[in-house]
Amino acid sequence: MTSQDVQGVTGTSGMPYAGGEKETLRASLDRHRDAVLWKLEGLDHEQLRRPMTPSGTNLLGLLKHLGSVEYGWFVQAFGGEVEPLWFDPYSAEDMWVGEDEPKTRIVEFYGRARTAADHMISTLPLDALGHPAWRRDDAVSLRWVLVHMIEETARHAGHMDILRELIDGKTGDHRPR
């Protein structure tokens, strides 16, 4: 589901102007999710992996990280099944991509994480409580996780926007219509 699939009146950004709370939060998250995928379009193997900051941040690593946190916050925290990971997200291995990790593997991983997260969002009420593995004593509501993941995804979409501009000059927070 993309933000364009949301029922009701929507603005030019696909955001529902008169939607309910969950619908609005989901549409906001989807808008940023779509933007991070758009940032990868048209780039080659080297450009996707090119370290653009002293810390080594690159476009494909940011997408891998976002897939990892979608699984962690939406799925694992609420008792869903997370696919076996080939990296350790607790040691920041989700921020880096190896030469043996093709773009398709990372994009498909992100897509599966997004689908699994969407299932949890669709089936749980906003007041449902989850327990992230790294904070077992802290309960978090689905509402809180949605807000947190909107912030997380928007933050990294902004990083990706800057990296993309440095690579080829393309900017923007969403695909031009």
Rank of each mutant, 00 (worst) to 15 (best):
E152L: 01
M149Y: 03
V97W: 03
E70C: 01
S55L: 15
A154K: 06
F87I: 11
L124A: 01
E41Y: 01
G130Q: 02
F87A: 14
F87D: 08
A92Q: 12
F109E: 08
L43A: 08
D100T: 08
G56I: 11
L85T: 06
T104I: 14
P102R: 11
R136L: 04
V107R: 03
E81I: 05
T104N: 08
G56M: 01
D137C: 00
D127W: 06
E93N: 15
G79P: 05
F78T: 00
W96R: 15
A113Y: 01
L142S: 08
L59N: 05
D94A: 10
H156Y: 01
G67Y: 09
G56Y: 12
R143F: 09
F78N: 00
H156I: 04
T53E: 06
W38Y: 11
I121V: 15
F87V: 09
G130K: 00
E81W: 05
P51E: 08
M149C: 04
L66C: 04
T53G: 08
R105W: 05
G42F: 07
E101H: 11
L66M: 14
G56W: 09
L63D: 04
G98R: 12
V147W: 08
L37C: 10
R50E: 15
V69D: 12
E41N: 04
A117V: 05
L48S: 08
T53W: 02
H148W: 14
F109R: 04
A128H: 10
T53C: 13
V69A: 00
L40D: 00
G98I: 10
L142Q: 01
N58D: 15
V140R: 05
S68M: 01
R112V: 11
K64N: 11
L43S: 08
F74N: 02
L63Q: 10
F74Y: 10
L126D: 09
L124M: 02
E152R: 00
E93T: 06
L66D: 05
V147F: 10
P51C: 03
G80P: 11
R112C: 07
R135L: 13
L66V: 11
A154R: 11
F109P: 02
L142A: 04
E46S: 10
I150F: 12
L129T: 12
S91Q: 09
R136Q: 02
V36I: 06
M149E: 02
M95R: 15
I121F: 12
E81K: 14
H148I: 04
S122P: 04
I121H: 00
H156N: 05
L146P: 00
G79K: 06
E70I: 04
E152D: 01
A117C: 09
V69N: 03
H131Q: 13
E99M: 11
T123H: 15
I150T: 09
E70R: 10
A139T: 07
E41W: 05
Q47Y: 01
M52P: 03
A92N: 15
Y90W: 13
R143E: 10
L85R: 14
Q47D: 09
H131C: 15
A133D: 03
W96H: 15
R155G: 05
A77T: 10
R114M: 03
L63A: 00
A133K: 12
